[in-house]
Design a protein around this nucleic acid. Structure first.
Lengths: 119, 119
DNA sequence: TCTTGACATGGAGTGACTCCAGGTCGGTAC
DNA sequence: GTACCGACCTGGAGTCACTCCATGTCAAGA
């Protein structure tokens, strides 16, 4: 796969994908004879996962750590599992933030409607 | 209220509060005789709202716009309402991102458990 | 009076992109 | 065969939203 295809399916921009490779957040991507990146479907899956993780607030340091453990092999699975479980907790926190913001917005909007309705 | 109290109740850091004031994301804060910021409860509420909005992904440009409209007065309420409604949509998107990530994590974790259990 | 702690300022540094200038390569159009 | 095009490449500068730091002020307690 070409970089533009992976960008389309992962939701990352082409620049972000190159940035992720350069900073070791994903395994190095193979190149074709002309020097262009040639993504395996495994690479593409990896970038989709990264996209989802960053969208939900995982710092890049953690993503890099995850990529490094992946390179090492199955021996790191317990550690990788731990990292994903911790991210799971982060999702809970984010959900709570969303809930709180939603309440606040509902309150504000109700006040606005009251002011507007009273006109 | 002092800046440290507002930081504690809003969840923003002291630095972030100063940064928000400097960049016009909140109305200018009154100072006491010694030049220290003296926050009204209205200021504190405002910063709590900002904290919640930024936590859920509102860009600072939008927050600034919101603050400017607030300064103008009640005439801007329809526009402010619109802005909050748009942020509400953003919350929906974020929730969808969380759901998707949760599914992905569940899938990954199940695979890890399978590998670990099969040992 | 001396020290401590909370505050102030301006400016440099950081994380995570994002954009740009300038260059290569493979394919179609003339 | 060469002119052009679009998609790719690289290195490096720019941006956004903080975050940290050096330095300084000031009120209050020992």
């Amino acid at each position: 796969m070409r970089i533009s295809e992976v960008a389309a399916m992962s939701g990352l921009t082409i620049d972000t994908i190159r940035f992720y490779e350069k900073s070791g957040l994903c395994p190095a991507i193979d190149r074709d004879a002309g020097g262009k990146r040639e993504f395996s479907s495994e690479d593409a899956d990896w970038l989709c996962l990264l996209s989802s993780l960053r969208e939900t607030g995982m710092p890049t340091g953690e993503m890099r750590h995850f990529a490094e453990m992946y390179q090492v092999g199955d021996a790191t699975i317990p550690e990788r599992k731990q990292l994903l479980l911790e991210h799971s907790d982060r999702l809970k926190d984010r959900r709570a933030d969303l809930d709180q913001c939603e309440q606040l917005l509902a309150f504000k909007l109700a006040r606005y409607d009251k002011i507007l309705g009273g006109k």
